[in-house]
Amino acid sequence: MTAPADAPGREALARATGGTASRPWILREARAVLRICLKDLRIEWRSLDNLPAMFFFALLVMVIFSFGFDFAAFSFQELGPGMLWVAFCFAGVLAFGHSFALERQADGLAGMMLAPIDPGSLYLGKFLANLVTMLIVEALILPLCAVLFSARIDAVFWPLGLAILVHTIGFAAVGTLFGAMTARTRRGDVLLPIMMMAISIPLLISAVRTTAAVFSDQPALKQAAGAWLTMASIFDVIFMTAAYITFEYVIEE
């Protein structure tokens, strides 16, 4: 606080308008986004509550698929992409649910809204943390998949990585928005996968087709992959923007 008791008002006013407030808005918000993302990742790193569960769930999905479908009769390219993305989707649902269960424990959304940051930055921070979490699980599952199903992941590493990144961004964008929403409804644990997956169907189709194209040698498929990636990118942009704008209405009290 200020020492001279006769001018706290002017001093405070100067502090509020000068100092940190004078830095450009976008830098301030970008820093806030990073801090929120790092906060979530730091909590996960210390507790490892979420990642193991996600990993094992994805692994379980793959094992169930291997019994449910005949991988001997079909090539990996035919069944694998669908299986991979179902596994990633359900792991994602776990991530988004946990992300906001964590905030509920601390009343964190309100706590963060006490700070001079945009609600959109809150969204982006959570989104980034969820994205990183999903990418980590995907990075762990893929080599396992290569072993279990004799899939040549290494041969297609970069196109596969691009396909996975673009589509994971979309899932995380939608999942973060609905994660926040369903954290405050009854049966949110059930509503989250319903809402998230219903909305993400275009993205899921694109993810499977693109991943299939990566693993296949059919030129027609590969040509289509370009169009799918474009659509997925459009999906990402549209939904991240919509979520960024509407997030404040979702977390409002």
Partner: peptide, 21 residues
Amino acid sequence: PDAVRRRIGLVGHAGFLYDGL
């Protein structure tokens, strides 16, 4: 909102504290 939030502090029912940190 930002100008206001810079100058206030709230000690609420919930502590706004993360158990894991």
